[in-house]
Every structure is written in structure tokens, then in C-alpha cells.
Design a protein around this nucleic acid. Sequence first.
RNA 1: GCGAAAGUGGCGGAACUGGCAGACGCGCCGGAUUUAGGAUCCGGUGGCCGGACGGCUGUGGGGGUUCGAAUCCCCCCUUUCGCACCA
Length: 842
Amino acid sequence: MTPTVSDYAPQTIEKKWQQRWAETRAFEVSADPSKPKFYCLVMFAYPSGHAHVGHVRNYMIGDVVARMKRLRGFHVIHPFGWDAFGLPAENAAIQNKLHPRTWTLDNIAHMKGQLQRLGISYAWEREIATCLPEYYRWNQWIFLKMFERDLAYRRRSTVNWCPSCQTVLANEQVIDGKCWRCGSDVDARALEQWFFRITAYADQLLEGADGLTEWPEKVLTMQRNWIGRSEGARVTFTLVGEPAAPIEVFTTRIDTIYGGTFVLLAPEHALVDDIASSSGDPEGFRERVRRFRAQDRTARLTGEIEKEGFDTGRRAINPFSGEEVPVWVANFVLGEYGTGAVMGVPAHDQRDFEFARKYDLPIRIVVQPDEGPPLAADEQVEAHPGAGHLVASGEFSGMPWADACAAMTQAAADRKIGEGTVQYRLKDWGISRQRYWGTPIPIVHCEACGLVPVPYEDLPVELPDVTDFTGRGDSPLGQVPEFVNTICPTCGAAARRETDTMDTFVDSSWYFYRYCDPRNDTLPFDPEVARYWTPVDFYSGGVEHAILHLIYSRFFCRVLRDLGLVAHDEPFTRLLTQGMVLKDGAVMSKSKGNVVDPDDMMATYGADTLRLYETFVAPPEKEIEWTDTGLEGSFRFLGRIWRLVAPLAGRVQAAAPPAGELDDAERAMRRKTHVTIQRVSSDLERVHLNTAVSALMELVNDLYALCDRAGCGPASRASEAAELRPATASVLREAFEALVLLLSPFTPHLAEELWERLGHGDGLAAASWPEADPDVAKAHTLVVPVQINGKVRARLTVEAGQSDADLEAAALAEPQVQAHIAGKTVAKVVVARGRLVSVVVK
RNA sequence: GCGAAAGUGGCGGAACUGGCAGACGCGCCGGAUUUAGGAUCCGGUGGCCGGACGGCUGUGGGGGUUCGAAUCCCCCCUUUCGCACCA
């Protein structure tokens, strides 16, 4: 394709304007409290090597919003950066003998070039990369603050171990028992680990969700489920015999406690070992426990295994009934939830019911339904978990179950045998990773002093240069003596550094605050500056982070708030979860070989075409199927605009604003222009990008028709010679300018070029969003359909502003209508808001 | 199993608080231009009947509310997503 003067040549235009934007620092901003701000954020990128069109889509959504807000007079911060720590870099290093830093920085350079060629309006001077000491230093700083406040702590626990990634995973990072990153089955391992006490904020995170009115309900539901709050009570049963010990159970149905005919311990329960020792056959006992513990962790968590258990031979006293009940160990009781022990109430819990039937344990009904026939224990085919009133429950008999819950919780507290508690499914966030390419945890282990924080003035604890990556087990940092061996900051004795690194989700939990003040070297960010820019007004990214990044960030926001660094409770006011880009029905991935490279698309069609396509093809939240023909359609549209506006730009740029002497077509055109301004404006505020584009296409179609008629359009021969009425020129000028401005968030290069050709030397940076004139946008004549018995039989063309009575009369006078009501009686006429007349005949 | 969202032409998708279903685009058909192809410009395009005016039918299926339902209510089917022994 050889471009001629009238051809749309995106490559030339795009290079020109990208240079211009860089020279004028068009998108750089600084805090200015006298102006309204807008923080537009897209999830930063993992520098995997190449951006594909799926990433590009998200950046496009953010860019359209940012550019629109800028034209609307906001001070817009639209930053970008790199989530630059993580395993792929380390794995690449193992394979290619490259340092992870080299691999990462090279990838960043390449991807940055891609994004710049797309013309995304980032404030590049705020760019951050989490793998640089100047960034991760502040991870360490925040970690130490959390350590001081007991929000970061170390304990031994059973953790999720990914055998392929050779590291620990947080609970959020295990999906269906598999590693979120590589899909391997996750094992259990007992390790000393660092945790963040996110559970301290469980209630706040839950309650805060109610205020997130501009988040997708789906994400909030996922977060609420993940937090999993349940109200109940802890009640203490007493193990009889030697050793005598309390067994605390958690229940949400203390009202059923008189039906508690056995106690179940998780195989991991602390008492199990003691009981085994004092049993007749300690080895056999332990063997059975070992078997349960070894059962597939995934299957145990998802309930896919057969419920099994065995009698410990010991008994415990039910504190309410006073009865001695057997104590069993059961494989379906989770050691990590509640107290690791439950009371078995077979009549009212399905799991306990199945267990009791299997092992012939007693079933006792203590809640009878208020209606219907009473339950009988030996006839039960399933548990009755529902409502009713209590029976066989001592002094509580006869009470409605909900009242009984309250009364019995109170009674337990009075008698010091229990108390009401709230239990969460959410667990503390395990952040230790046994890998190299992450933030070193700034702690020193001293024989004498224990866990000693690295003094703030010694930060950052820098990653040493490791050159030999094996990817085997234990933390690579442990193999670097110069790193490990240090002295205790407190007592000066020889000590060892912590060798685990932090989960990379720590990096991403606060990066959006760092953008506000990215070069600060005394604090993570200046609270005053952050107060101006944050919270983030619009945040766009993938739904896969619904309960990972998005819950961690909400937690960090509160921690930083309590440290006095931020002034709000929620970091992201509005969230959009964008749909994925599919090719051949599948997510794009290198292994499937279905990746569409934006560079290829830009080489053929230009960045603007790619940008337009990805915003037009479907609503941002929906997934899209990539089609080359769709992309070509977008290219055609831009060519169509070019052929329309470019040749006429010089001829209309001096035209006066439209005045009174317009003909019908010109008046209609003006109206279309102003209606389009209204539609695009409101669609963009709602981020309905696809319908905004379609409104612009309608405008262009109408402009073609007008120019065709005026003999000046692309279809006209010898268009240069055609006379242009001054009125036409003024209408065209107004329409072209609106079109270019409304289009500019989508296709900024083309818009800048045409804006310049329309006589504006100072660029779109100096322009502002067009305002619709409601009077011009208003229809002067309208078409009112007339329904007879629900079917449209005629259309009236009337002057706007007719009264309902006039419309009714006009409708009934219409010959078409007359024909349909002839010989029948008009029973009723409804006029709907001047838009429709509905006639009912019999 | 539980919960949520969705189901509209050949395809992607429009339709604000119930008010002309199918905007816009892709594809397809026809015309103009062209030596030809491509590109471009114009027109047509849910289905059935009719030469046209027009008529009938139509938003997963079935019922209901209403002058009027893609939209609201009930039942069912399908798809996608989330949760799934959390006591």
C-alpha cells in the first residue's frame, strides 16, 4: 500500500504525535490542590517479555478514561509501572544463565516501547519497577512498621507448598488445590513462616465492602465469601480420664448441643498425640492418624473423600447435658478452622448424620420443626438442619431455636464453659517465599536476642548478586554467606539474616501510592501528596485478582491508614474488571500459539486502529473473540474519517459558527452533532466505550450523506471545484471539531492530526471537551408510533411539544388508524409521554 | 449441591426509569466506479407471505401482570462464573 496525499497513513501520523507528546511532557502532572484531580489506574504489568492484545485492551480502557477526563478539565494522574519481582524471571535465569535482573530489565524496556507506540498517555516520569532497591526498600520499611505493631509475625505452621515452584503459597494463591501460577498440585508442609495479620482487619474488610458501591457485585461477593464470617460459640467439653483436658469446640448451632452425642477431633488436633500415648496401642493409634493426615490435602479440603473416623476410646463430658460422649478422630474435621474440634450433632447436621449412621453412633433429636409431623430419630433419612423449637434440652426445651442460641450462649458464658465468638474463614497471609527474586525480609536471627528488625537506617537490605540458580528447595539467599552472616543490630554478636523473600503480592499492595511520590527517599510516599491524588478514582484490571491483589490492597490501605500515611479506608473507589481477549475460543498463551502481537497489528494498521477495535468490539467487562475482519472494520472507519475530514479541513476552518440560515438537512446535521456530544459524553462517564464509538460512526455516516448532497464528500467527483455554502461550511466545521474531540480518547494520533489541520496549532492539550447545546439537540419534529391493540399501525410526524390530547386526536384522524378501527369501538387511548399513542379497540 | 450473572439476526453486540426490537460493526447480496482485481462510494439484509402498499411472526421454553414486556413476576431449560465438608 503506497500512501498518497489523501490516504490515511497512520505510521507517519503516530510517530509525529508520539514525539510531540514526549517533547511537551504532555501527560506529566504534579499535585495541585487548586484543581480537581482524577486518579486513573490500570493494574501494572508483569514484565513477561511481550504485551499481547489482551493486556493492551486493559490499557486502552484506562487511556480512554484518562484522556476524556483530561479534556474535561481534570488534573489526571495516569501512571504505569512494573510488577517486576517473581518466579518467571528466576526460572528464565535458571534456563538461560541470565541474571533475573537482566531478564527483567530487558523485558521492561521492550514492553515500554510497545506501550509508547500505542500512544497511551502515561506519566512515564512516575514509572516504577518493584525489583529496584529504591522501591523494595519501602516494602521492608512497611514490613518493619507491621512487625512493630505485631501485624507481621513468624510462626511454624502447615503451609501450602508448590513442588514445581519450590516455594510456599498463601491460601489465596491456591485455586482448587492447585498453584495459581503453574497449576501443580499443592502439598502440605510444616515450616517456620512469616505472616501478615490480615485477620485483624477481617471485620473492617467485610464491612468496608458494603461501601464499595462502584465495584462489581461479583467481586464483593467473592471477597465476602473468602472472609467467611460466621457467628457462633466456643464451648468446652471435658476429656475424662488421664490426661484430663478441656476440648474446645466451635459451633454455630449451640442450640443443638443437647443433641451432641460425640466429639470429633481433627487428625491435626493438639490433643491427639497425648491421647495416642495413653491409649492401649499407641503405635496403631498413631498409624491411623498418620493415614488421615496423609490423605490428599485437596480432597480433604473439598470434601471429595469418604468420611472416616475411629474411636479414641476416651470420653468427654457434654457441658450442657452432663452426659459422657465418645471422642473420635475424624478425617473430615479441619485442623485449621475453628478449634480443630467439633461436637457431633447427627440429628441436625448432615455430615454428623452420615458419620453417626456409618459408625452406629446415637442420634438424638433436639429441634422439632414448628409445622408438620415431628421427627423421629430412627426414621430420619437425613439431618434436619433447619428451624424449629427445642425439645429434650433441659431448661431450654420449648424455645425457638434462634432465641435458644442467644440464651444458651449466655448460659455458657455465665457458667464459664464457653462464650460467643466470631469465626473467619480468612487466614493470616503467609508471605515467606523460599526464592531469590523478591524483597528480602529485613530481619536478623540472633541467638541471644531472637528476631531483631534491621534498623530503618540500614535499609534497604539489598539482594546479593547470586549467579548460580539451581531452583532446588531452600532459599537461594541461604547459599550466600556474605548475605547470611551478619551481626545482631542489638547486641553485636554474630547472627544470621532471614533468607526468605516476600510474596510479590506485597509489592502490588501499595504500588499505587508510590506513583504519587515515586522518588521519595525518606518515606514510601509523602502523605500530603498522596492525600491529593488518592483514593484511586478508576481502577481497571482482570477479575482474576478479585480475592488476591484486591483484598491485599484493601488490607494494606488500612494498615497505612493506621500508620498515618493515608487518609481513607478504601483504596479504589471504582473498579472495572475487564474481559479477556480470546483467540479461537481460548485465552491467548504462548503454549497454545494463539498470541496476537500488537506490534504486528500496529505495523499493518497503526496503533489507532488497534485501540479503536479493542474498545469497540464489546463492552469492556465482556470477553472478546479476536477477529481480523473486525480489526479491518475499525481501520476502514478511520480511513473514512480521514477521507471526509482531511480534504475539507482547510475549507471549513475559517467558517463562522452556525447561525440561523440553515436548511433542513443542515439543521438536522447540527442536531446530530449535539446529540452525539450528549451520547458520547454520558457513555464515556459510564465507560460504555463500545456504544460511544457506535455513536461516532452514526455521526460520520450522517456527515457522508450531507457532504454527498452538498457535492463535497469523498463520493463526489472534482470535489475541489464544488461550491460550499457558508452555512454548510459552518455546520461541517462544528461537526468535524466535535467528532475529532470526541474521538480523541480512542484514536489520539488521528485526532491530533485532524485537529491541527482544522486550524488549531496548539494541540489537543489546549482543547476542551465539547459541550452540547440542549436546544440544538432537541428534536423539532418527531415520529410518534400509533399502536392499535399493541401493534404499530401508523406513524405520525408531528411538531415537538404537542399535548397528549392533540396527539390522541391526530392519531385517531390518521387514515391508517381509521382503517383499523373501522366498525369497532375505541375502548381506551393511552398517550405515553409524548412518544407513543396506544389505542385499544373492541 | 449452593449462589450470582447471562441467553436478542449468519456473527460481535444496541435498546435510558416497561413505549417503534435488531443502533453500530462484521459477514453476505446488489449497484456505481474500474481494463481487471483490490480499494472506495451508494443501496439492501430477522423469518414467512405478497409485484408493491402491506400482512403475519419474532428477543432460550411455558405461564402471568399490563393499553403495551427483550425489560417486571412465577416455573423450566441452557451457558458462564464463583463457592463447595468452614461445623
